[in-house]
Design a protein around this nucleic acid. Structure first.
Lengths: 141, 141
DNA sequence: TATTAGATTAGATATAGTCTAAAGTAACCA
DNA sequence: TGGTTACTTTAGACTATATCTAATCTAATA
């Protein structure tokens, strides 16, 4: 996605396109591997040493609020983020903790009785097991 | 679940039943609301002020490794835990962040082509939206 | 241009989790 | 029983992650 498109999606969501916010968004689109907040900060701050931690975190929050970015549900202590692009599920490796994307498919919704008064917005799947690298190590040949 | 049963499940998993480990396990069984690690520590430490933070965290790790406790995948910075009992999915409220249990049902597995060399152990669902309390506040009446 | 709302900054602070070294406890075996 | 060993706990230091604060800057707009 090019600069103009990013700018447009920010402004379309009511966010000013500041250089710092742009940098966060661009990094997320270039790195669809669910980077952690510290990784994002480190990368953005390396490119622009004046961009502070607070700004990076503020922008991540703003982008999530605006619906342009998703915070990924994983265990582990650093928050992980994902620019919303193609829908996908997640595979979390039991052993190394890596989070990988899995093809999207629709999931049967819960019975409305079990849903109660809750308002359902979306359903995502988390698969667990061993990623291909760890599976290879575990059962070599 | 009574004391003997907890003791038995610990020892059946190769863990000594120490007073501190027992306290963590008993707290999790009594509070199936996915408490955070700090909440667990605070409760256990209140009952037994000598039980240290390191011990609580070590025991949580041991219980997860032994398969008696599950670490719940949520965004947010404090780890949340859940004694393994009845299988269930999770509903996370967009607004207040609370994690609630949802009835279990089996989920279609991913195509083996998309799975590749990964080894799948389990699949769990995360529903997102508004919990009943927040839904009421949002759309009163 | 003046006003105002929104953003950014550095650094302090808060919160969560891990590590260390010493001491304590339980299992086991001669 | 006593000795050996592996496991466990403890307090507190330390690290990592995230948020807050107050001052300053920037951009939109009247």
């Amino acid at each position: 996605m090019d600069a103009a498109a990013i700018k447009q999606s920010l402004e379309g969501s009511g966010l000013r396109c500041t250089p710092q916010r742009y940098a966060v968004m661009a990094f997320l689109m270039d790195h669809p591997r669910h980077p952690t907040a510290p990784e994002i900060f480190e990368a953005v701050n390396r490119a622009d040493p004046l961009c502070s931690r607070a700004t990076t975190y503020n922008n991540l929050r703003d982008l999530v609020r605006a619906g342009l970015v998703r915070e990924v549900a994983v265990e582990g202590r650093a928050a992980r983020f994902d620019a919303k692009g193609v829908r996908h599920h997640h595979f979390i490796c039991d052993r190394c903790g890596n989070v990988e994307d899995m093809d999207w498919y629709d999931v049967p919704k819960p019975a409305s009785r079990s849903l109660g008064k809750r308002v359902l917005r979306e359903s995502e799947l988390i698969f667990r097991g061993l990623c291909s690298k760890c599976a290879r190590r575990r059962a070599p040949r």
